[in-house]
């Protein structure tokens, strides 16, 4: 296993007198780590602590072996950050903004200009790069923000909602780019509400819930115990049917959409399912084989954590 590039020990951080992060501990090794959680879970504050912008009340934060906030400027030089809440440097064209971002990170103008064009080319920004940023569409703004985070060739990338506002082709293109950056060896932390993006990119997850860690570890560990299943929809899919199936040794539940979820996927179980359903008078209109999603795994994990009163 790689050494952790983000290590957090018992991190407590308050903002405006209100505790936001409460005793967070995590060691993140993954090439791409998904930072997920509901609004107000503490994701932005966590990123602020990683970059040394927000000083912890208590605890220790280490990024690339450098303790924060002591080495804040060094980390910010080695990191490329795409911030959701902030826009683009105003007052000029897209290429101006990207060049400026590169120069702020230490590049001389000529080199910043060369790399800015390379980054914008990679993001498929054509002649629009010479237009004033005030005229940009949301998608173009996202591309420009991404170029600003990449221009100085950072070792780590911290991306906050990178695909928000992009059309499907743009989203796919950006995700492919991020994946290729990950495969080149860059460490990436992605904060996102779009779990499909996290599923596509990440090999490790950090799930925050109300300022605490609900889960931290490889995606495979999060998905453990969540196997493929069959999902049936139709009429009279009710508790008596679930009881009959249980008696026939077929584990099943009713989900929030009223569908019957059958955990057993072997052919024999499915044959027996049809007979039990017929006996119970259930009308099965559709039976699909479904792979478990990260979203379900996360929600299930949150349910468990909340049921245990916040215990991991």
């Amino acid at each position: 296993m790689n050494p952790p590039w983000i290590e957090v020990e018992n991190l407590h951080l308050s903002r405006g007198g209100r505790p936001v992060l409460m005793g967070i501990s995590a060691a993140l090794h993954g090439r791409a780590v998904g930072l997920v959680g509901a609004n107000g879970a503490g994701k932005s504050t966590f990123i602020g602590a990683l970059l040394g912008i927000l000083a912890p009340d208590k605890g220790k934060v280490t990024v690339l072996g450098l303790e924060q906030p002591t080495a804040a400027l060094e980390i910010r030089t080695r990191a490329g950050v795409m911030a959701e809440q902030a826009g683009i440097f105003p007052g000029g064209s897209g290429v101006d903004a990207v060049v400026f971002a590169g120069m702020l990170s230490g590049l001389v103008r000529k080199e910043a200009l060369r790399r800015a064009h390379r980054a914008l080319d990679a993001l498929d920004v054509g002649e629009e790069r010479y237009r004033a940023t005030a005229e940009y569409s949301t998608g173009m703004r996202q591309r420009c923000k991404m170029a600003m985070s990449l221009v100085h060739d950072p070792e780590i990338l911290i991306l906050d909602e990178p695909t928000v506002g992009l059309d499907p082709p743009g989203r796919t293109q950006l995700l492919e780019l991020i994946r290729s950056l990950r495969d080149e060896g860059r460490r990436i932390l992605i904060s996102t509400h779009i779990l499909a993006d996290a599923e596509f990119l990440c090999d490790e997850m950090l799930l925050l819930d109300a300022g605490t860690v609900a889960f931290s570890g490889p995606v495979a560990a999060m998905m453990k115990g969540r196997e493929e299943r069959f999902v049936a929809s139709g009429d009279r899919l009710d508790a008596p049917l679930v009881a009959r199936l249980a008696a026939a040794n077929i584990p099943a539940t009713i989900d929030s959409a009223g569908r019957l979820v059958i955990s057993a996927i072997d052919a024999d179980s499915i044959r027996r399912f049809w007979s039990v359903a017929a006996e119970a008078g259930a009308a099965i209109r559709r039976l699909d084989r479904e792979a478990p999603t990260l979203e379900e795994a996360l929600l299930a994990r949150l349910d468990v954590v909340r049921a245990n009163g916040g215990t991991r």
Partner: peptide, 18 residues
């Protein structure tokens, strides 16, 4: 005032600018 109204001060904060 331009940077404040465009809400871009955070863009400086995430770079080596204090």
């Amino acid at each position: 005032s331009r940077d404040r109204s465009e809400d871009v001060l955070y863009l400086y904060a995430v770079r080596p600018v204090n």
